[in-house]
Write a protein that binds this DNA or RNA. Structure first.
Lengths: 152, 152
DNA sequence: GTTAATGCAAACGTTTTGCACGGAA
DNA sequence: TTCCGTGCAAAACGTTTGCATTAAC
């Protein structure tokens, strides 16, 4: 586990304890998998990983823990209407994503100036902007190579 | 119906005819409601409107027509994992949206430079960027006023 | 007359819920 | 000992599908 993952894990554990939520083995496993993943796992992915350590774990438990973290703003939910949602506990605040439509991989690109854009939107529309979401969709280098090789 | 709505309607009708799809009364009604709406209607909203003219219309028919238009790139689908999808047939290409989390209203703000941003993302990540989506979430002026009046 | 669209109901995939049991504090 | 979390199954939700009937062309 890298340094950032450890920090995030501690932050989340402390927040849970402060609010008198219990640290169960299943819950801890979900947290650990979340902070270790830099590929924005889905609930199904988390579920499969947790099952390796605790084979009786149910999907509902994973959903409940992830939902709790979302409520506490300790995880960023990337909702998709046509697929399972994905979660980012390493950077639990709005930031842009690049999504491969072929393999489903999600990356965090470097990009600044979005906050300023949000403020500009607020001025122009009169809305009080609270959050935002920016996703780019395309094909990652790996998938493009495979596609090229097949001659599609 | 404003000029843009009429243009869009004609474009869609011609495209349908060219591909030998049939122009049924229900289908025409869906198209008309889509091009007249600048509030990004949901399927349920379209359905309710179509029902006023053709009371036997089914939800499935609306879904099928909207799906057909989506395939033909004549409508932009804004998918939401926690609510019904919304549709934009007036500007059927990626553009930013401002969404009121209180009343669900969706507006099209002026904003340029996103295409350039997409190209920058492509360069930085190696992805072939095909499309994107940018949503700002906040509270619209009308809802803020109501909230202020109630003292929430 | 052909063939595609409609309308109904059943199926779908993901997420949420209700509830009895088990375990963290 | 308390009562929150778990795990199961059922429900919920928007959406899609299969199929017989209807209607556009």
């Amino acid at each position: 586990m890298d340094r950032h993952a450890q920090e995030r894990l501690q932050q989340m554990l402390e927040k849970l304890k402060r609010r008198r939520f219990r640290i169960t083995p299943q819950r801890l496993a979900v947290l650990e998998i979340l902070v270790e993943s830099d590929f924005h796992p889905s609930v199904e992915t988390i579920f499969a990983q947790v099952r390796k350590r605790f084979p009786t774990t149910s999907l509902a438990t994973v959903y409940k823990t992830v939902g709790l973290l979302k409520e506490m703003h300790e995880v960023l939910e990337l909702g998709f209407h046509d697929a399972g949602n994905r979660y980012d506990a390493r950077k639990p605040f709005p930031h842009p994503h690049v999504i491969c439509t072929s393999c489903g991989r999600i990356r965090d690109p470097e990009l600044s100036g979005l906050q300023e854009l949000a403020e500009e939107m607020g001025r122009k529309t009169g809305f009080t902007i609270v959050t935002h979401r920016l996703d780019f969709y395309g094909v990652c280098p790996e998938c493009r190579e495979k596609t090229d090789a097949r001659g599609d």
